[in-house]
C-alpha cells in the first residue's frame, strides 16, 4: 500500500516520520518524491545503488522543412513555441512534453529529442528499499521524475510503501499523492503550522483521500493550535511526536532515531501501528 506523507511547508518532519516509519517496519519501501531536495538517502545511506536517468521529450525543428504555418504555436496550451522572424523558437523549460506539436506538424518539420532532467537512485538499507528522485538544478518541473518513480515502484505496492512528498500543495504534490492509498499530514504546533496544515488538508479532501494527522514538535502542557484545528474539523489524530532535544540531535547527525535507541524504536513502532490500523480501517470502509 502507498502511504504518502505530506505537509504544507518544509521542515515540519515529513522525512523524519517517513524514514523512521520505514525503519521500524519489517519490510518497507521508502520513496523520496521531494525531487528538488531529496534527503531521505542521507539518513539511510543506501548500498548497492542503481541509477537510472530520467529524460523528457522536447521538440526540435528542422528550419528547412518548417513552412511557418504555426499549427504547433496555436496548438500549444503552454505557449512553449513562438514563430519569430520566420523561425520557430522552442522554449524547452515551458514545454510539457505532450508531443502534440510533433504529431500535428503537416510538414513533418518537428521531431522529438530526449533531454535529461534528472535521475532515480535505487538502493537498500537493512530491510528498507530506497528510491530517490533527483531533479537537476535549474529544471522547471520534477513531475516527470515523480511519474517515473511511482511507476518504477508500482511493483512494490503490495508491500508497505512510504512516500515522502515534496512540501506544499502544488501540482507536484498532487502527482505524488495520486496513487496514494492513505495520506499522513504532519503538522507543527503553531498558528503558522495550522495555516500550512489547512493547505494539505484541503488538498487531500479535494482528492478524496483517507488521511490522518501526526502532530510533531509537541510541547508538554502548552497549547497546540494544530491539535485544536484537528479537533474542530473532526480530523483523525494518528499520534504525536514530542519536541525533544535528543531526537533533534540524532536527526541533525543524519542518523535514524528508531535505529539508534529502543525508546524511539518503540515510539515509531507504535505510530506505525496506529497508521496501519487506520489504513486497514479505511480500506474496509472504502475499498
Amino acid at each position: 500500500m502507498n502511504i504518502a506523507i505530506l505537509s504544507g511547508k518544509g521542515g515540519t518532519g515529513k522525512t523524519l516520520l517517513a524514514v523512521n516509519l520505514a525503519a521500524v517496519a519489517d519490510h518497507a519501501v521508502y520513496i523520496d518524491c521531494d525531487v528538488e531536495e531529496p534527503n531521505g538517502h542521507l539518513f539511510f545511506k543506501p548500498l548497492d545503488n542503481k541509477t537510472e536517468t530520467v529524460a523528457v521529450k522536447i521538440p526540435v525543428v528542422d528550419d528547412v522543412l518548417c513552412a511557418g504555418c504555426r499549427t504547433c504555436v496555436d496548438f500549444c496550451r503552454f505557449n512553449a513555441l513562438a514563430y519569430i522572424a520566420e523561425r520557430l523558437i522552442v522554449f524547452e523549460q515551458i514545454c510539457h512534453s505532450c508531443g502534440g506539436c510533433t504529431f500535428l506538424c503537416p510538414e513533418d518539420a518537428l521531431r522529438e529529442e530526449e533531454r535529461i532532467i534528472g535521475c532515480i537512485e535505487e538502493g537498500y538499507s537493512g530491510s528498507v528499499k530506497i528510491y530517490s528522485g533527483i531533479l537537476n538544478t535549474g529544471e522547471a518541473s520534477g513531475i516527470p521524475i515523480i511519474k517515473r518513480l511511482l511507476s518504477l515502484s508500482e511493483t512494490e505496492r503490495p508491500g508497505l510503501c512510504l512516500i515522502d512528498c515534496p512540501p506544499g500543495s502544488a501540482c507536484i504534490v498532487m502527482e505524488t499523492i495520486r496513487n496514494a492509498d492513505y495520506c499522513v499530514l504532519v503538522a507543527e504546533p503553531t498558528i503558522f503550522g495550522v495555516h500550512n496544515l489547512n493547505l494539505v488538508y484541503e488538498l487531500v479532501s479535494l482528492f478524496n483521500k483517507p488521511f490522518g494527522v501526526v502532530l510533531n514538535k509537541c510541547l508538554e502542557g502548552e497549547e497546540n493550535p494544530a491539535e485544536q484545528f484537528c479537533l474542530k474539523q473532526g480530523i483523525n489524530l494518528l499520534g504525536r511526536i514530542a519536541f525533544d532535544n535528543e531526537l533533534g540531535l540524532i536527526n541533525s547527525k543524519a542518523l535514524i532515531a528508531a535505529r539508534e535507541s529502543t525508546r524511539y524504536r518503540a515510539q515509531f513502532s507504535s505510530l506505525l501501528a496506529s497508521v496501519l490500523e487506520e489504513v486497514q480501517h479505511e480500506t474496509v470502509v472504502n475499498p
Binding site: 505557449n79 512553449a80 513562438a82 522554449f91
Partner: peptide, 15 residues
C-alpha cells in the same frame, strides 16, 4: 488567462 507561457504568447502577438 493562459495557463503558462503568457509572456511568450503576448510577445508573439506584439511581433
Amino acid at each position: 488567462d493562459s495557463q503558462g507561457g503568457a509572456g511568450i504568447k503576448a510577445a508573439q502577438a506584439i511581433v
